[in-house]
Amino acid sequence: MDLFIAIFTGTVIAATPLIFAALGELVVEKSGVLNLGIEGMMLMGAALAFGAVTAGYPMPVAILAGALAGVAASLLFGVLALTFLTNQYAAGLALAIFGSGVSAFLGRGFGSEPIEALHGINVPVLSDLPLVGPLLFRFDPMVYLALVMFAAISWFLYRTKAGLILRTIGESPQTSHAIGYPVIRIRYMAVLFGGAMAGLAGAYLSVAYTPLWVENMTAGKGWIALALVVFATWRPLRILLGAWLFGGMTILQLQGQALGLEVPSELLSALPYLATIIVLVLISRNRQMLALHFPASLAKPFRPAG
């Protein structure tokens, strides 16, 4: 039973950064913009948040700093992709490289000591319940925040007028512009929101999950988040499920190492990447399913005419 609790909670925790980053990217892509720079934004968020903790700031401030770092990084991308109409693939890649460099630069003074991780919550009575307590009521606040964000984004995209406008812009910026919606401004807001979410994802890694600073500590999680959005065929609920699937894989890999399975550790470490490829293939084979929720204007620069 303890093993079950460990696997369950481990899965939920490992999935949390993926949920933040992938939900943020979902909103960005739904507005018709493809930001490949999640990895860079996460690293900047991770570095800033960790730096804030080591500088003595309280945890909420540190996490906010991580989110703001993501916003700042995404603004760079936004200016290039939205104002300067550059190729979004190239701008996103530049952001990924730049973010990795800046975070390594900022992080050089952080040392290799872990910090005291973000605490789990303690709800009277509920947290002390047998089984249900450790399974549901002892996570750190960010885990619940991720779920709240999931609910909020699902509601926003599909139950509000603003969400409808955002999705319309992702389908046809020309039409939206003709009707009078400020396409570029709304896309900016989506990009900045995606940056904040990626920053939160990074902050979660460095102040709650590991809680360490290591150069390039995201190890591809930003790219896996991108894959999750495709895997989820641009639907929030599937992002949640996909993130748990990947979180579960990470935990099984760790448990496998702990149990001393007779497999090279590198093979276990490669599992998430292999799994990403496999799920992408399975989803992408079905072109119709992919096309159904695919934002039609994704990654196409838009210039309001006249």
Partner: peptide, 25 residues
Amino acid sequence: PSALTRIFQGILLFFLLAADFFIFY
């Protein structure tokens, strides 16, 4: 720190992409 190289790489690409805009538009 050697991370400067990656920072400069990123900045160079940013500027290149932005410069294109002023040249093509």
